[in-house]
C-alpha cells in the first residue's frame, strides 16, 4: 500500500503511468471486443447458411 500511496503522491509521474495503462487497456479491450463481435457475426451467418442449405436438401 505504501508504494501505491507513493505513486498517488507523485503528481508528475502519475499522469504518465495512468496514461500508459489507460491506453493499453482501451486498445486491448477494443481488440477483445471486436474479435468477439466478428466471431459472433460469422457464427450467425454460418448458421443461417447451414439452415438454408438443410432446407434445400
Amino acid at each position: 500500500m505504501e508504494y501505491f500511496i507513493g505513486l498517488l503522491n507523485n503528481k508528475v509521474h502519475l499522469k504518465y503511468v495512468c496514461l500508459a495503462y489507460f491506453i493499453s487497456f482501451f486498445l486491448i479491450s477494443g481488440l477483445v471486443l471486436l474479435s468477439k463481435i466478428r466471431t459472433k457475426r460469422f457464427e450467425k451467418e454460418h448458421k443461417r447458411f447451414e439452415n438454408k442449405n438443410e432446407g434445400q436438401t
Partner: peptide, 8 residues
C-alpha cells in the same frame, strides 16, 4: 476466438 471466426 479469432480462429473460430476465421473457420466460420
Amino acid at each position: 476466438d479469432r480462429i473460430k471466426g476465421e473457420i466460420y
